[in-house]
Protein backbone atom coordinates (compact mmCIF):
# COMPACT_ATOMS: atom_id res chain seq x y z
CA UNK A 1 0.00 0.00 0.00
CA UNK A 2 1.28 3.40 -0.87
CA UNK A 3 2.19 5.95 1.73
CA UNK A 4 -0.36 8.46 0.36
CA UNK A 5 -3.20 5.97 0.71
CA UNK A 6 -2.29 5.23 4.33
CA UNK A 7 -2.21 8.95 5.16
CA UNK A 8 -5.56 9.53 3.43
CA UNK A 9 -7.21 6.64 5.31
CA UNK A 10 -5.81 7.91 8.62
CA UNK A 11 -7.09 11.45 8.03
CA UNK A 12 -10.50 10.11 6.97
CA UNK A 13 -10.73 7.92 10.09
CA UNK A 14 -9.86 10.81 12.44
CA UNK A 15 -12.40 13.15 10.81
CA UNK A 16 -15.06 10.40 10.86
CA UNK A 17 -14.48 9.76 14.57
CA UNK A 18 -14.95 13.47 15.34
CA UNK A 19 -18.11 13.57 13.21
CA UNK A 20 -19.57 10.57 15.05
CA UNK A 21 -18.83 12.18 18.42
CA UNK A 22 -20.47 15.43 17.36
CA UNK A 23 -23.52 13.56 16.05
CA UNK A 24 -24.05 11.73 19.32
CA UNK A 25 -23.29 14.71 21.55
CA UNK A 26 -25.57 17.27 19.90
CA UNK A 27 -28.44 18.32 22.13
CA UNK A 28 -32.01 17.29 21.20
CA UNK A 29 -34.06 19.23 18.68
CA UNK A 30 -35.85 22.26 20.07
CA UNK A 31 -34.04 22.27 23.42
CA UNK A 32 -31.16 24.77 23.50
CA UNK A 33 -28.26 24.10 25.81
CA UNK A 34 -27.78 27.61 27.24
CA UNK A 35 -30.89 29.76 27.63
CA UNK A 36 -29.52 32.79 29.53
CA UNK A 37 -28.82 34.90 26.43
CA UNK A 38 -32.10 33.87 24.79
CA UNK A 39 -34.13 34.89 27.83
CA UNK A 40 -32.33 38.24 28.08
CA UNK A 41 -32.91 39.02 24.40
CA UNK A 42 -36.59 37.99 24.47
CA UNK A 43 -37.25 40.01 27.63
CA UNK A 44 -35.31 43.18 26.80
CA UNK A 45 -35.24 43.59 23.02
CA UNK A 46 -38.18 46.00 22.94
CA UNK A 47 -36.72 48.27 25.60
CA UNK A 48 -33.11 48.23 24.43
CA UNK A 49 -33.46 48.45 20.66
CA UNK A 50 -37.02 49.71 20.28
CA UNK A 51 -37.91 47.02 17.73
CA UNK A 52 -40.84 44.64 17.64
CA UNK A 53 -38.94 42.18 15.45
CA UNK A 54 -36.51 40.29 17.67
CA UNK A 55 -34.73 38.55 14.79
CA UNK A 56 -33.78 41.83 13.11
CA UNK A 57 -32.64 43.26 16.44
CA UNK A 58 -30.32 40.28 16.89
CA UNK A 59 -29.00 40.45 13.33
CA UNK A 60 -28.34 44.19 13.21
CA UNK A 61 -27.84 45.21 16.83
CA UNK A 62 -26.78 42.44 19.21
CA UNK A 63 -24.76 40.56 16.60
CA UNK A 64 -23.88 43.39 14.24
CA UNK A 65 -20.41 42.04 13.59
CA UNK A 66 -21.92 38.97 11.92
CA UNK A 67 -23.72 41.22 9.46
CA UNK A 68 -20.50 43.15 8.89
CA UNK A 69 -18.76 39.88 7.99
CA UNK A 70 -21.60 38.96 5.64
CA UNK A 71 -21.30 42.34 3.92
CA UNK A 72 -17.55 41.76 3.58
CA UNK A 73 -18.18 38.36 1.97
CA UNK A 74 -20.57 39.89 -0.56
CA UNK A 75 -18.09 42.66 -1.34
CA UNK A 76 -15.31 40.11 -1.91
CA UNK A 77 -17.60 38.04 -4.18
CA UNK A 78 -18.50 41.06 -6.31
CA UNK A 79 -14.86 42.13 -6.50
CA UNK A 80 -13.81 38.64 -7.58
CA UNK A 81 -16.48 38.34 -10.28
CA UNK A 82 -15.72 41.80 -11.66
CA UNK A 83 -12.01 40.97 -11.68
CA UNK A 84 -12.45 37.65 -13.53
CA UNK A 85 -14.89 39.06 -16.12
CA UNK A 86 -13.10 42.37 -16.58
CA UNK A 87 -12.72 44.15 -19.91
CA UNK A 88 -9.47 43.21 -21.62
CA UNK A 89 -7.84 45.60 -24.06
CA UNK A 90 -6.65 43.96 -27.25
Amino acid sequence: MEKRTIVAVLVFAIVAVFFFFSVFMVHPFGKPGQVNMDDHIIANTQNETGTNNAVTSVVFDYRGFDTLGEATILFAAVAGVLMIFRRVKQ
Partner: peptide, 27 residues
Amino acid sequence: TGGVLPLMNFAVGVKVIAGLFVIVLVM
Protein backbone atom coordinates in the same frame (compact mmCIF):
# COMPACT_ATOMS: atom_id res chain seq x y z
CA THR B 1 -39.51 52.58 15.87
CA GLY B 2 -36.24 50.74 15.71
CA GLY B 3 -33.45 53.32 16.08
CA VAL B 4 -30.69 52.69 13.56
CA LEU B 5 -32.10 49.38 12.32
CA PRO B 6 -34.12 50.85 9.38
CA LEU B 7 -31.05 52.83 8.23
CA MET B 8 -28.89 49.69 8.34
CA ASN B 9 -31.62 47.74 6.52
CA PHE B 10 -31.63 50.37 3.77
CA ALA B 11 -27.83 50.36 3.44
CA VAL B 12 -27.61 46.56 3.32
CA GLY B 13 -30.54 46.50 0.87
CA VAL B 14 -28.79 48.84 -1.59
CA LYS B 15 -25.61 46.79 -1.22
CA VAL B 16 -27.27 43.43 -1.83
CA ILE B 17 -29.38 44.68 -4.77
CA ALA B 18 -26.36 46.11 -6.58
CA GLY B 19 -24.04 43.24 -5.66
CA LEU B 20 -26.22 40.30 -6.72
CA PHE B 21 -27.48 42.11 -9.85
CA VAL B 22 -23.96 42.98 -11.02
CA ILE B 23 -22.85 39.35 -10.56
CA VAL B 24 -25.70 38.01 -12.74
CA LEU B 25 -25.40 40.81 -15.33
CA VAL B 26 -21.63 40.55 -15.81
CA MET B 27 -21.71 36.74 -16.05
